[in-house]
């Protein structure tokens, strides 16, 4: 799993829902997009082992 700002990679065991994943990482879902390839993943999606996901912050500082 790739996290941006700052950029780092982490491994999380699946299966896990997006909501649970963000709770685990203490990330407010309002502040990020979950990107898989060229599309997005919704809050209720179930992520599996081996899924390559980017968690991208959307907030900019003005």
């Amino acid at each position: 799993m790739l996290l941006r700002n700052p950029r780092r990679e982490i491994e999380i065991a699946g299966p896990i829902t997006v909501v649970k994943l963000l709770q685990q990482l203490q990330i407010n879902p309002e502040t990020v997009l979950l990107i898989q390839g060229d599309t997005l993943v919704t809050r209720d999606a179930l992520l599996s082992d081996g899924d390559d996901i980017e968690i991208r912050p959307v907030t900019s500082g003005g």
């Binding site: 941006r4 700002n5 502040t31 990107i35 997005l40 959307v58 907030t59 900019s60 500082g61 003005g62």
Partner: peptide, 30 residues
């Protein structure tokens, strides 16, 4: 919203500056 704009770029393939401005980090607006 901000999340919609980022989603718009991802879904239309617009390659944008994802990193935050280094001078804005921790500013009042954030």
């Amino acid at each position: 919203g901000e999340r919609e704009m980022a989603a718009y770029c991802v879904l239309t393939g617009i390659d944008y500056q994802v990193d935050e401005c280094p001078m804005a980090q921790g500013n009042r607006h954030l």
